[in-house]
């Protein structure tokens, strides 16, 4: 299936679940071949259904990673999927945006659908303080002593200073 047709299917399939469905193309090389990037927004309630829908048009959707950042009043989580892969020049890079409220950032795990999402979800939990329902406990990146500090937050919970010379026993400032 070529990318254009795939994007058509994707749009049809996700019509009631996402908003702001955008297709961005860039051209590369002498042949000006197009690379397709698709962006879409969804809500915290709907996002798991979107992921489930992806399975309909792409067996084993490839979950690349989820990005996340503190956008002031909300925390934005972006799930990057590589769809329609293993077909020359027709990959569709699909990015699904979920906006979570700052006070109570909470989302469901997708590791039951895509086991490969485990590390990314743990990272979001440790770095942004997002509660992920159904994800096993345990730290993967940050030391337990840093619990309560979420380095990527831009508010009082974030890290405002990089600790240097930890080996000399300088205390880590929690700000």
């Amino acid at each position: 299936m070529n990318a254009e047709k795939f994007i058509g299917n994707l749009k049809k399939e996700l019509a009631d679940l996402v908003s702001d469905f955008r297709v961005v193309t860039t051209e590369h090389g002498i042949s000006n071949r197009k690379a397709y990037r698709v962006w879409a927004d969804t809500s915290a309630e709907n996002f798991k259904n979107v992921v489930k829908k992806l399975f309909k048009i792409q067996p084993y959707p490839h979950f690349s990673v989820s990005s996340g950042f503190d956008a002031g009043s909300t925390i934005e989580i972006l799930l990057h999927f590589a769809l329609n892969y293993a077909k020359p020049h027709n990959l569709v890079l699909f990015t699904l945006r979920v906006k979570l409220p700052k006070e109570n950032p909470k989302m469901e795990t997708i590791t039951d659908l895509i086991p490969g999402a485990l590390i990314a979800e743990k990272e979001k939990r440790e770095f942004l303080g997002i509660e992920i329902e159904g994800l096993p406990a345990g730290h993967m990146f940050l030391d337990e002593s840093l619990a309560g500090v979420f380095p990527w937050r831009r508010d009082e919970k974030g890290a405002n200073k990089i600790a240097k010379n930890l080996h000399k026993g300088e205390p880590i400032e929690k700000e």
Binding site: H28, R33, A35, A82, Y85, A86, H89, L91
Partner: peptide, 8 residues
């Protein structure tokens, strides 16, 4: 799969 740089 994905055109970037001259791989296109």
């Amino acid at each position: 799969d994905f055109p970037y740089a001259a791989y296109a």
